[in-house]
């Protein structure tokens, strides 16, 4: 047996921290040539060094189509194709109904839905037939949590994309799956609240609802992304795979 992604070209958006960074590291360790994106150049440079294995960083914001064009120009020039895409870049902020602003709505849908859609569409000319597209969704696609309506709606849209794109891309045998994490200990979660103490309290509250009794780690998502990226999941497509310690399953 060889490494699971030997020789594959893999793109990970939002690869400079959290789940994206952990996944880029796993992909590289399994033999993939990895390209990551991130909005902040300094963090991106640091992440590229951390991933190693010849990884490349392309600075950009997935909600800006020109940035995506630049990303795929680099991929095309360097590798000429994409075999695996982890559309991971996304953002979340709380806003209860009554306090939702147009700006909040546009920002969340701009990154999580529009950005993700064009991340995939603009990859298609380079995409290898038989490749794997993984959409990072969330358990909120099927759960209601207070003050999370806009974020949850974006993730329900992402789960829906996995269904329709499975059919749209069937002739090219490209598999499309949604990966839905539960609460994971990431900088993104810390950014949801105002202080480290609040973050700790938030995570403890979440952990109490998880059958495995804790929040997850980014690497636990990364390992499932490897499964969905590799031939181990060759007959898995159109699904939403929950990686949540059981939280939304019961």
């Amino acid at each position: 047996m060889s490494a699971k992604l030997e020789g594959k070209v893999a793109v990970v958006t939002g690869g400079n921290s959290g789940i994206g960074l952990a996944t880029a590291k796993r992909f590289a360790a399994e033999g993939a040539r990895v390209v990551i994106t991130g909005r902040r150049q300094a963090e991106l440079d640091k992440a590229v060094a951390e991933v190693g294995h010849g990884a490349i960083g392309v600075q950009g914001d997935v909600s800006r189509l020109a940035d995506l064009d630049r990303l795929y120009d680099v991929v095309k020039e360097k590798y000429g194709r994409v075999d695996v895409l982890f559309a991971n870049a996304g953002g979340a902020t709380f806003a209860p109904l009554g306090e939702i602003t147009e700006e909040h709505f546009d920002r969340e849908f701009g990154i999580n839905v529009k950005g993700l859609l064009f991340t995939v569409q603009k990859a298609l000319p380079l995409f290898s037939d038989g490749g794997s597209i993984i959409l990072n969704a969330s358990i909120v696609s099927i759960k209601g949590m207070p003050a999370f309506s806009v974020y949850s709606a974006t993730k329900a849209a992402v789960r829906s994309f996995a269904r329709t794109w499975t059919v749209d891309l069937k002739d090219r045998k490209i598999r499309v799956n949604a990966l839905s994490p539960g609460p994971i200990d990431t900088p993104g979660v810390d950014g949801l609240v105002n202080s480290p103490e609040e973050a700790q309290k938030f995570k403890e509250g979440m952990a109490s609802q998880v059958p495995l009794g804790r929040v997850g780690s980014p690497d636990e998502i990364a390992k499932v992304a490897v499964f969905l990226a590799s031939d181990d999941s060759s007959y898995v497509t159109g699904v939403e795979l929950f990686v949540d310690g059981g939280m939304a399953q019961i």
Binding site: T166, P211, V226, F227, D232, F242
Partner: peptide
Amino acid sequence: IARAVVFLATDGSGWVTGTTLPVSGGWPAV
């Protein structure tokens, strides 16, 4: 099917529990 079972048996799925995983080529998940 067997490859997906290996995934669920190993540490690669350490954070996956209580789930139903269709291994069906997209039918009828779509």
